[in-house]
Design a protein around this nucleic acid. Structure first.
Length: 497
RNA sequence: GGCCCUGUUGUCUAGCGGUUAGGACGUUGGCCUCUCACGCCGAAAGCCCGGGUUCGAUUCCCGGCAGGGUCACCA
């Protein structure tokens, strides 16, 4: 049985893999991690590496984050062969441009009986969920209310323009089994525990599950290499392939990157933006090497290697699957070693690329010009625009919670501030005017005097009581540097109790 | 809670029935040295637990336990 299942894999089709990020927020290191393994595997096998943008959620979509994904992956050197920007034979590579395709496939499924229309209201579903939770029902999920509506009933509802979603008709019994090529045993799910997943939302957009399967098939994806978080929805995907009569890809679920406390790597507990590492001066090849070691082992006690060397040596048997803790200290050590290994000329060139990029330096000089008396003062004056965490010792006594607030509340205020910036479409871009508008509004909402919050922000970001205009300072420091420092400051406040 | 995945020092890992259980980060002692850093030498620290199978289990099997993931008209 096991043998037979393993043998099914992807016969003789040309090897094609993909990374399919969704454009929400900053590009995540987890995306880079998964991209790396897809990329390396494709290169090793002479296959094709595809970038597909999964932008089917209009609510969470954020402008500019697609471009940010391109930028981040390019910075890392993970070049894709097909994608929204470079095109390719299976385009478009942006799901929002493939809506007609999904519609068509939903119709196909409906016609075949593999899916059905569900007219249940959100209220009913919420009530259902509440009841299931309250009764401690062992399995939550749709109750199949609309599963067998008569044609007449459906027509009536359709004529009345009742909103509906389309759900996958999951078999009531039996099991769905698939092989994960990273694990020794096939993975099995009882069908009765698999929910009738929504495939098409009431706004006509596909959900991830539908779009992903349709695209993977249409784009000829032979190997799906993704995070372990997807294992539980894989039976739905397998069932979808079956409903369409398609051959599923070979599944590979990699362990999830973790915080120090072993939970799934999160923004709350760790810097997760690829840009954070770029801005703070980690080198792309070092970051890649560090991440490679999280799930891949070269063997022979070698852990410093290039992507080329990884490609050379790559085999799935060298990939481990326990969720690794992303340890910034080790990354730091790798990066330091790599800096030491460079020639002075190479180092100098590296610095020009970003840290000392002329445009950046000029922008900084513009801030320092009127505040400095000697040329030699520029560098010390601008020092806090560089580096990560600051030493707050010299200004410790100046760091105070706003009037009427405890230290803990002030810390919380800073955390909220950092968090809410991400949710603000303007402030997220981190320009001075947007930051100012956001910050003033923030003060209003949280009942703090701007003066007090702004001083706290200034101290956090610059480590000084005096600096160039706060919002220019923040914009020039960059989001990632500000975020770490504000996090540091909030930690410091919290520590005081 | 149901289901699923995972389980070697604090962390990332090597190991694939017999090893003084190897390497790296971190921690730590020392050497080098005007200081720091680097570099070098050394140390502490691990096979989740309990049953099997076996002459012998970290390794194979079973059962626990622990951690994680997932249970959306988000991906």
């Amino acid at each position: 049985m096991t043998e037979a299942l393993h043998a099914v894999s992807t016969a003789q089709r040309p090897l094609r893999v993909r990374i399919a990020p969704s454009p929400t927020g900053d590009p995540h290191v987890g995306t880079a991690y998964i991209a790396l393994f897809n990329y390396v595997f494709a290169r090793k096998q002479g296959g094709t590496f595809i970038l597909r943008i999964e932008d089917t959620d209009q609510e969470r979509y954020t402008a500019g984050s697609e471009a940010a994904i391109f930028e981040a992956l390019r910075w890392l050197g993970l070049r894709w062969d097909e994608g929204p920007d470079v095109g390719g034979p299976c385009g478009p590579y942006r799901q929002s441009e493939r809506l007609a395709i999904y519609k068509e496939h939903v119709e196909l499924l409906l016609a075949r009986g593999g899916a059905y229309r569900c007219f249940c209201t959100r209220e009913r579903l919420e009530k259902l969920h509440a009841e299931q939770t309250a009764s401690k029902s062992s399995h939550l999920g749709y109750d199949g209310h609309c599963r067998d509506l008569s044609v007449a009933d459906q027509t009536a509802l359709l004529v009345a323009e009742t909103p509906f979603v389309v759900r996958l008709r999951v078999p009531r019994d039996g099991v769905t089994r698939f092989v994960d090529h990273l694990r020794p045993e096939p993975i099995e799910f009882e069908n009765r525990l698999v929910d009738d997943q929504v495939l098409q939302k009431s706004d006509g957009y596909p959900t991830y599950h539908l779009a992903n399967v349709v695209d993977d098939h249409l784009m000829g994806i032979t190997h799906v290499i993704r995070g372990e978080e997807w294992i539980t929805s894989t039976p739905k995907h397998v069932l979808l392939y079956q409903a369409f009569g398609w051959e599923p890809p070979a599944w590979h679920h990699l362990g999830l990157l973790r915080n120090a406390d072993k939970t799934k790597l999160s923004k709350r507990k760790n810097p997760v933006s690829i840009f954070h590492y770029r801005e703070l001066g980690y080198m792309p090849e070092t970051l890649l090497n560090f991440m490679a070691n999280l799930g891949f082992s070269m063997g022979a006690d070698v852990e410093r290697f290039t992507v080329e060397q990884m490609i050379e040596a790559f085999e799935w048997s060298k990939v481990s699957v326990g969720g690794p803790v992303f340890d910034p200290a080790k990354l730091e050590a790798f990066n330091g070693a790599d800096i030491r290994a460079m020639s002075i000329d190479a180092l100098y060139d590296r610095l020009q690329e970003r840290v000392l990029a002329p445009a950046r330096i000029k922008a900084l000089l513009a801030q320092a010009q009127e505040r400095v008396h000697r040329l030699d003062d520029f560098i010390p004056y601008l020092s806090f625009f560089f580096g990560g965490s600051l030493d707050y010792a010299p200004v410790l006594d100046k760091i105070k919670a706003p009037a009427g607030k405890s230290n803990a509340e002030a810390a919380q205020l800073l955390d909220d501030y950092a968090q809410e910036i991400e949710r603000d479409n303007q402030a997220r871009s981190f320009t001075a005017p947007a930051l100012e508008a956001f910050s003033r509004d923030f003060c209003q909402r949280h009942a703090v005097k701007p003066k007090e919050l702004f001083m706290l922000l200034r101290l956090g970001v610059s480590g000084r009581t005096a600096s160039p205009a706060l919002f220019d300072t923040m914009a020039l420091c960059g989001k990632d540097r500000c975020r770490t420092r504000l996090r540091d400051l909030s930690g410091l406040l919290r520590q005081r109790g």
